[in-house]
Design a protein around this nucleic acid. Sequence first.
DNA 1: AAACCTGTCAACCGCGAAAAT
DNA 2: CATTTTCGCGGTTGACAGGTT
Length: 414
Amino acid sequence: MGGHACCYKQKLRKGLWSPEEDDKLIKHITQFGHGCWSSVPKQAGLQRCGKSCRLRWINYLRPDLKRGTFSQQEEDLIVELHAVLGNRWSKIATHLPGRTDNEIKNLWNSCIKKKLRQRGIDPNTHKPLAEVDGGDDKAPDNSEKNSGSGGLQLPVTPAVAIANRLPTVDKSMDESTTSKSSATPTKESFLDQFLANHESSSTGRSPNPMASFPLPLLSFTPDYGSSLTTSAALPFGSNPLLWLNQTARQLDATPELSCNAISAAVSSLSTSAIAPPSCAGDSTISNWYAANCNNSPRSSVNDSGGFMLQSSCSFDSGIFPWSELTPDKDVQVQLGGETEDLKWSEYLHGAFPASAAAQAQSSQPLDGDIKGGSQFTISGLSIWQQNQQLQHQLQAPDISGKDFQSVSVGFQQI
DNA sequence: AAACCTGTCAACCGCGAAAAT
DNA sequence: CATTTTCGCGGTTGACAGGTT
């Protein structure tokens, strides 16, 4: 195998990352942002190429990553999105907050494909295997196979049924944020709006974080095992909090509405960030990092099968960039209409490894090429503990409608 | 107990697009 | 406008762990 030209030239390290390297990278990025990736390794003192640093950060070290097993609803959503978007993993990943394209790609190749085949569905075309010649492993060509233009429409999965009704999916559609409004809420308009909302949220700066609620789509996917019913779907434009309350009542009356369904719903209430998992009652990133950021992924996986409730914290949908933060600058934190003053340095102490925080207090940004992409929204971390409580409620195996109502109250507080 | 098989996942590679020069 | 650099994406590889024979 060849290597990167830059790796050859500079004899850079390859392969697995050591904890020390991770530490360096985290410290550097939490202080200065990534800026130009090619300059990161030099500035962080790493013998890696910038590409490798970027990958490590995006796929493993970012604090807003949701780790652990995929829920059934997440898998369903991936299947649905794959039927529409094909192997555009990064696009699909934008609809699953806290998941990386690499993670989704791996899941698809190792798990979902097999499951679909076992159900007699061709994973590439999303059509019954019997109807697919050869069943080869070529990725779907969205603009052709899924457009459903002409020819006999064979029985297909709900996902491809929807996809077939869509206009040709091409790049221009991906980038479009315009949504077609329809007087009658057909499935087509549902999906159109779903995608439009997701596309707008995929920028990380969606004005309406509720726009990416996945339920309407999931409600069409009984074949994939979703336990959601149409009645549990959130109508677009409705108030999610009202929906939560209403669904809470349904829960009491409908115990078969599974916890997973709820988790999938609530997990999409905010698309911007994920609270680090497995740290209930111990809510610092340093602890989370100690528990999760090592080179033994198998030991760091949260196997609860549940989901991680998201806060409004994000490195990508930031309120202010790192470069604008000075160590003792007072920041105002929005908490559901209330503002809370705290010092940035205190905040760092509470949220990051002490060493990184200490360095942050004594350092200034390296140069002016820090990009907006390395921004950090402070509000989410400050409400972390609230999220931990909500996580506890939502991860309970037999969640009740009463619990769900308290979740709704919790969101109102957020 | 050893060899083999299988699944998972982090990381690498090459390419194209976008941005910078 | 051409060239170079940087970034992001999707495909692929290889290490590792656990299971099976």
